[in-house]
Structures are given as C-alpha cells and as structure tokens.
Amino acid sequence: MGQYGHSNQPSHHITYMYDVAGQPWKTQEKVREVLSRLYTGSEIGQGYPGDEDNGEMSSWYLFSSLGFYPLQVGSPTYAIGSPLFTKATVKLAGGKKLVISAPQNSSKNIYVKSVRVNGKNWTSTSLPHDLIAGGGKIEFEMTDQPTKWGTGRNDAPPSITKPGEDPTTWRDSTSDTGAVIGAGGTDVSALIDNDAKTQVTLTGAQPTVTVALPQGRPVGMYTLTSGATGTAPSAWTLEGSNDGTTWSTVDRRTGESWAWTSYTRSFSVASPKAYTQYRLVFAPAADGVTLSEIELLGTLKGVEPGTHPSDRRVAETKPSPTPSQSIDRNWG
C-alpha cells in the first residue's frame, strides 16, 4: 500500500480522512484494502500488521469491519467506511442490538451506494454515538463502482473547530508564570510538579488547596491524581473567586471512588467562568486526604501554541475497563 504504514497506530486515521475531504469513496476503497490485505497470515502465527498495543490494532479491525470508526477521539461521532460483512450484530447493554446489514457486500462491491438508518435515508458520512449506543439498524447498499453518496456540502463528519478557526488545546493554569499554590502553610508544591511519585496529605476539618493565578482563567476541566498510598478524596467542591473573599461554586462532587492508586481522573465543568483564584475544598478523612497531582485546564485563546508553560504538561487519564461486546457475523 505504498507509504501507508498501518503498523504505526498514529496513522490509523489516515484512510478515514477522505470522508472529511469530501471523497468518501476513497475511504471505502482504502479501508477495504487494509482489511483484506494487512490482517493476514494467522495460519503461520501472524495476523497483525504491527504491534498490538492495548487492543488498538484489533479495535481498528472491529470498528472498520462494522463500517464505522472513531476518527476524532473524544468526539461523539464515528466516520463511515465500508462494512466487511453482509450482516453483523452488536449486542449492547440492556438487551439492545445494533444490526449492520449490507446484503450486496462482496470483495468487489466495496463502495457505498446508499445508507439507511432505522429506515431513514442517511447521507452524512458520520454516525452519532447516541444512535449507535441506542441500538437499531444500519443498512448499506453496496456497489462495485465509486458513487457520489456522502459528497454533499454538509455530509462530511463535523469539525471540532469552525471554518478558519485555529484549534485550541487544554492548558494547565497551575503552570502559569506567577501562579501560587498553597494550603494554609502546608507545602503543597508537589501537587503541581508533574510527578505522580510525590504526594501530599491534607488534614484538618476542611482540607483546602488554593491556586492564585496572575490573571483570570476559565477552567473547563480539572484533574486530580490519587496518591500511591493514603486515602483519596471522596467529595469536594471547586470554587472560584476574583477577590479572595467571595467564592462561587465551580463544580461539586460527592460519592467519588478511585479504582487504582496514582490514578488520574478528569472532571468537566458545566459553565466555565474566568477567575483569578481557585480552591478545592475536600471533605475530611480520618487519616487525611492524599493527592499527588492537580491540574486546572482551560483553553487560552490568543496564546501562541508552544509558548505557554503548560504546553509541557499533559493530563493523562486511565479509562475504566469497558466490557467487551459480542459480534455475530453472517458471511453471506
């Protein structure tokens, strides 16, 4: 396949980019070529075209075989490709089923002529997550020649940015030059040293960590990392202030549990507003509340990429295991 290297997982999105470019028939052709040529050799102990890192190579195969793929990680949409089977059934939670059918499908009929979703015509080259998670029926009409299906002006997968808008990335405001973190005299600098091996235990009737920023920043998401030892927080309130006297609730959590030690969890803020000070007020624990890292994340418009100190820090979350879903394949 020329210079295309499917063995390198960061390139797995490439074949689906033709959907975005308004040429979905090329996505259909290339996806089927990968499925037919690069996952071979199981009879001699092969079968994967590269390292199977955490199921990524299998995930690409399974999604693409069904006819869609999560092109934009974190976005609730899937890009449509070319289903491999005449029929596939995904058994979902609660007894629901997602049935994908393509009766005319074959090694030659790799192009999509039309799509119907739950009985309605579908021209978009993307599918929303809610539709897939809710179950139903997706019907593909296949043919052996490229078609103009999915090439309409608004048929491409939705973009996370507006036309002409530069992408914005999450930046950690605790890394702003001049940001100060404190906890009533307790040294809590380890909470922003980007090292989960260091940790802090907060004690008292109302354990509190305060971060003062040199200028107001909105927080759209924040992360907390539990310690390697000690008790992780179960309840807390994130508050914001512009004068250090009047505080407003930014986010509140109760009944939280932590599946692992040194576990980074992210929390979204429903209505971000700019504040010059933030504080995390935790519910007390008998042996104190232990954390190893905190981050206050937001998009900073007007800041050149790569120039902000927080560009050096990346928040990593460890997702909870997802139960596997079974697939029934009818080869036709």
Rank of each mutant, 00 (worst) to 15 (best):
M1A: 13
M1T: 11
M1E: 14
Y4N: 06
G5Y: 12
S7T: 07
S7N: 10
S7R: 12
S7C: 06
N8F: 15
N8Y: 15
Q9Y: 13
S11N: 15
S11W: 11
I14P: 02
I14R: 10
Y18K: 09
D19A: 09
D19S: 10
G22K: 02
Q23G: 04
E29Y: 14
V34I: 15
V34Y: 01
L38N: 11
Y39Q: 05
G41A: 05
E43T: 11
I44S: 13
G45C: 01
G47S: 01
G47F: 05
Y48N: 14
G50D: 04
G50Q: 02
G50L: 05
E52N: 08
S59D: 14
Y61G: 04
L62R: 12
L62S: 07
I80F: 07
P83G: 01
T86I: 06
A88W: 07
K91C: 01
A93G: 11
K97H: 09
L98W: 10
S106H: 02
S107A: 15
S114C: 04
V115M: 10
V115C: 03
K120I: 09
T123R: 11
D130S: 15
I132Y: 03
G136I: 05
G136W: 06
K137H: 13
F140I: 08
T143K: 06
Q145D: 05
T147C: 03
T147L: 06
T147D: 02
T147P: 01
W149L: 05
G150Q: 01
T151R: 13
D155K: 02
I160A: 12
K162N: 11
P163H: 07
W170S: 12
R171G: 07
G178W: 01
G178D: 04
A179E: 01
I181F: 04
A183T: 02
A183M: 05
A183E: 03
D187H: 02
V188W: 03
A190W: 05
I192W: 05
K197P: 00
K197E: 12
Q199E: 13
T201K: 04
L202D: 03
T203R: 13
T203E: 08
A205G: 07
Q206W: 00
P207F: 01
T210R: 11
V211T: 08
P218I: 00
P218Q: 03
V219M: 07
V219W: 01
T225E: 12
G227V: 00
T229R: 13
A232K: 09
P233I: 00
W236H: 07
T237H: 09
L238E: 09
E239R: 08
N242E: 02
T245Y: 09
T245R: 14
T246I: 09
T246P: 03
T246H: 13
T246W: 07
S248D: 11
V250Y: 06
W260N: 14
S262H: 06
S266Q: 13
S268G: 06
S271Y: 08
K273W: 05
A274Q: 08
Y275V: 05
Q277K: 15
Y278V: 06
Y278D: 03
A283R: 10
P284L: 04
S292Q: 03
L300M: 12
P305F: 02
T307P: 03
S310M: 00
V314P: 00
E316Y: 11
E316P: 00
T317M: 11
S320G: 15
P321V: 12
P321M: 10
P323C: 04
Q325K: 15
W331T: 11
